[in-house]
Design a binder for these strands. Structure first.
Lengths: 235, 235
DNA sequence: CAGTAGAGGATCGTTGAACAATCCGACAAG
DNA sequence: CTTGTCGGATTGTTCAACGATCCTCTACTG
């Protein structure tokens, strides 16, 4: 009898194999364009124009739109087309409500000692590198990575996905901040502080730090965002 | 000047008005068919057959499939088609991990006294009516409604939507229970107990009850579901 | 002059057909 | 029993077309 192959070995390769589909690739392109701020909120995405630009059919493009609409990056208005989503202040408040509940719950769920903080550690390092490079947009990304890593501690695929979506939405709001440095930089040391508390297995402290972090960010963002929206009424 | 109409009055009608789109309606039909158990997990949904049966084009049907795939009710395998999702035991575990975190977090977030328990109250009543009618499938639905109401206490649209999806997935698992009565009935009084604790503003007790509820349900479901899957290997 | 009605153009929603790519099952060969 | 191959069936993708809907601009009426 020949030695059999452990099926688990091949599991990782499955993703490489299965991922194709033009619609997915188109969605990926648009997703990065949006999250990097090249397509600003409110922009209308014409099926004809984009389909022609990317060289895909309208049907395929519509499937890509559908994908991004469910990720809340696009909003779809019947017979009017799709637009890059414009978040309301209420959306921002809801996003932070979700973050408060889920991130804190993820931290509080850490009872067994050996939990893996390497992702969170890496995200903080990423943020410190971005700071020393003066790449403030990357700093925002690193902060997002850190909080994603915090949620990942709960070990739930569904929660990870939700958080990924929520944080992608949050990026749309970040683009309304005209000075990313003054907004993002103060939060980097706070992330490291949270990480330290987690390392020390001081769950209570970590949760308190996290809560105040989110409260402050929300307050700052809402204040800045609401006045920003007020000035943008006239295109 | 003609008397003006209060805009709020028309808000309710908007949903009726705005909802069109053949794809959405098709998705709705399939969604209820699946959640009510007429389409069992593993069933393959042929584009040709269903498109012809519902009288819609293949393209439109594919948009509907895309919708339901993102709701995790269908699984889409490239070049093979879409199937009614078959959850793994790992999925069930993840679903209960999500429920534990979110439902408990929602309860714990109740600090201000006047929170609205009418939805939860109604769900328990719905369950008691289903029990007295002997409608055990409705009892399962009522239990789901109760826990949805618990999450709704957090007041977050995004959390509500997540929970709706997770509970819809859970319905797929429930259909694998051959005796819905013995599975669902014991949980009804526990829901009422949780409701009572909430009414008395005893948050800590409510959270403890909720945790043990979810632990028990998960354990029972995993045990029953894993052996069920084992027997279904041969079609 | 203001306000409304209507025509026109642009875009979307949906359909049907077509072709290539891929998968599945059966059958034959080793 | 396993492996290779073939043909049918289904999906992935594109294209063209038509009706429906919305937006804008014009012209008419008071």
């Amino acid at each position: 009898m020949v030695a059999e192959i452990d099926p688990a070995v091949l599991m990782g390769d499955r993703a490489l194999l299965g991922r194709s589909s033009t619609a997915d690739r188109v969605a990926g392109i648009l997703r990065t364009r949006i999250s990097e701020g090249h397509l600003l909120p409110g922009t209308r995405l014409s099926e004809d124009a984009i389909g022609q630009a990317l060289g895909v059919s309208r049907n395929t493009l519509r499937e890509a739109f559908r994908l991004l609409t469910h990720e809340r990056l696009l909003s779809h208005e019947l017979n009017r087309g799709v637009f890059v989503r414009t978040l309301t202040v209420q959306d921002v408040v809801d996003i932070y409500q979700v973050r408060r509940l889920i991130e804190c719950a993820a931290v509080r769920s850490l009872t067994v000692a050996p939990y893996d903080l390497s992702q969170a550690e890496a995200a903080v390092a990423e943020g410190e590198k971005a700071t020393s490079d003066g790449a403030w947009a990357d700093l925002g990304t690193a902060n997002i990575h850190f909080h994603h890593a915090v949620v990942a501690l709960a070990g739930s695929a569904r929660l990870n996905e939700l958080m990924q979506g929520v944080l992608a939405e949050l990026r749309l709001v970040f683009h309304a901040m005209d000075n990313p440095r003054v907004f993002h930089e103060p939060y980097l040391p706070r992330n490291r502080e949270i990480l330290s508390a987690l390392k020390a297995a001081n769950i209570i402290k970590a949760e308190l730090l996290l809560t105040s972090y989110l409260d402050d960010a929300e307050q700052q963002l809402v204040a800045r965002y609401s006045e920003r929206i007020g000035t943008e009424r006239r295109p």
